[in-house]
């Protein structure tokens, strides 16, 4: 899978609910952030967890979230970053 986002892009984490293994923390679902770093592509952990191959590999991004966006209240100058696979991200214009 080709990376579709570049550093600085505005993105939103999908607000999906899944019952199977995934690495997108619940507290960040539906939250808006900015692409801070673009990493390589990695095997899909949602497949690896069930002994499958994890293909196609997924581009991985470090996403920066403003604290207030995540928790609804400000806490000084505070930022949360998390690493999110591309299929959990949508463009936020």
């Amino acid at each position: 899978m080709k990376p579709v986002f570049v550093t600085g892009d505005k993105v939103k984490v999908r607000a999906a609910e899944v019952a199977t293994h995934c690495r997108t923390p619940h507290y960040l679902r539906g939250k808006r952030g900015i692409v801070a770093r673009v990493f390589g592509a990695y095997p899909n952990p949602e497949q690896l967890a069930y002994h499958r191959l994890g293909v196609p590999y997924l581009p991985l991004y470090q996403i920066e979230f403003d604290f207030k966006e995540v928790w609804g209240k400000a806490a000084g100058a505070t930022v949360i970053t998390a690493d999110i696979y591309q299929h959990w991200l949508e463009r936020d214009n």
Partner: peptide
């Protein structure tokens, strides 16, 4: 024989 992801899934 399995991945660390499978390990996490089993723990979870």
């Amino acid at each position: 024989h399995y991945t660390v992801d499978a390990m996490r899934r089993a723990v979870e």
